[in-house]
């Protein structure tokens, strides 16, 4: 995904307003960009607070800065600068966080991007994009460039499996992507873990559970219509994220459901619950430890779908009883109702 981002950025830098600002991350991977756009790349050193505020100042003078670093260093360390200088001032700056979720799986919690959405999704003016694979990363990068205003783009590193097929349609900020249609269960997810979700959906299919998969690549604004439609049409929603559920997609979906009077939908949130993953290994190793592999997702999905089916049966029975009570009331003789 990182290479896809940089390749797209190199193309977009035909726009001379675009300037890429680094915080000393990206040796080698920016070589081609540097060769082609030498005047549009600056490494401002390991000083992220200054970097963010400088980008705001440059945006005020007509530049479109793409500020690139590892997620915790880009948005957590200088958080107040992101809030005041980028969001409050509504500057046309693109923050590109590398290492979403456990992409830096060997480097420990200091390098994990697992709370960034929580702290950023509450900020006014900020668009948050979380693409799922290299193709979508290129699309999201282009969308970020076209969008006038602050954008946070969170991406994985290295080789990430393809999630989109070739005919994936347009990438639109604020519009979820339907990856798979289904009627028993809806799984809403974002980022690279969608590859696990798609495998889980196939496993569920084999169990006779038809699963709708929505790629919520736009976390802010969230496609609330897609969330509400999933609640009304299916009624059973599982959110899956390689991120904290507190403030992450799960919370955003739960808030949307409650605000849209869809609180009766069955909802389960899969993700992190206030814990650091202090293990090392591959991304899959960490997902395994945290119960976020395809088999875990399929298990949770199946359980949720069965619960929903059971609830539906119970409510059908309860609904029938209600109707009977009304019928009895209706047939009471006139004049027997108390005022």
């Amino acid at each position: 995904m990182r290479n896809a981002f940089i390749a797209e950025l190199t193309e977009l830098a035909e726009d001379e307003r675009l300037i890429t600002l680094l915080a000393d991350n990206g040796i080698i991977v920016y070589d081609e960009y540097a060769r082609r756009r030498p005047k549009q790349l600056l490494n401002l050193g390991i000083a992220e607070s200054n970097l963010i505020a400088m980008a705001a100042g440059m945006a005020g003078s007509g530049f479109i800065p793409f500020v690139y670093s590892i997620i915790p260093f880009l948005v957590m360390r200088p958080y107040e600068f992101v809030r005041d200088d980028i969001c409050y001032q509504n500057r046309n700056v693109k923050l590109v966080g590398i290492g979403a979720g456990y992409a830096y799986s060997t480097l420990g919690p200091t390098h994990h991007g697992t709370e960034d959405v929580s702290i950023l999704s509450c900020l006014p003016n900020l668009t948050i994009l979380s693409p799922a694979d290299p193709l979508e990363t290129r699309q999201a990068t282009r969308a970020a460039h076209e969008h006038e205003g602050p954008v946070y783009l969170r991406i994985g590193t290295g080789r990430n499996p393809d999630v989109l097929d070739g005919d994936s349609g347009a990438f639109t900020i604020g519009r979820a992507r339907l990856l798979r249609e289904g009627s028993d269960l809806a799984i809403l997810s974002h980022g690279t873990i969608l590859s696990e979700v798609l495998v889980a959906a196939k496993q569920l299919e084999r169990q006779g559970i038809s699963t709708r998969v929505l790629n919520m690549h736009s976390l802010s604004p969230l496609d609330s219509a897609a969330v509400v439609a999933a609640a009304k049409e299916i009624g059973t929603i599982l959110t899956v994220e390689e991120h904290s559920i507190f403030g992450g997609l799960g919370s955003l979906v739960a808030t949307t459901l409650m605000e849209s009077q869809c609180g009766d939908a069955n909802l389960k949130l899969m993700g992190l619950k206030r814990r650091f993953c202090e293990s090392y290994g591959s991304v899959e190793d960490l997902r395994k430890e945290l119960g976020l592999l395809a088999t875990d997702i399929a298990r949770a999905g199946a359980e949720l779908a069965r619960e929903r089916a059971a609830t539906k049966q119970t409510s059908r029975a309860a609904g029938a009883a209600d109707v009977r009570q009304i019928d009895q009331a209706d047939i009471q003789p006139a004049g027997t109702h108390k005022a």
Partner: peptide
């Protein structure tokens, strides 16, 4: 828009660089 200390100076550097 300033108010929090240590911000405006860095933005000014961005303006000068631009």
């Amino acid at each position: 828009s300033t108010g929090s200390l240590g911000h405006g100076f860095c933005s000014a550097i961005g303006m000068a660089l631009a």
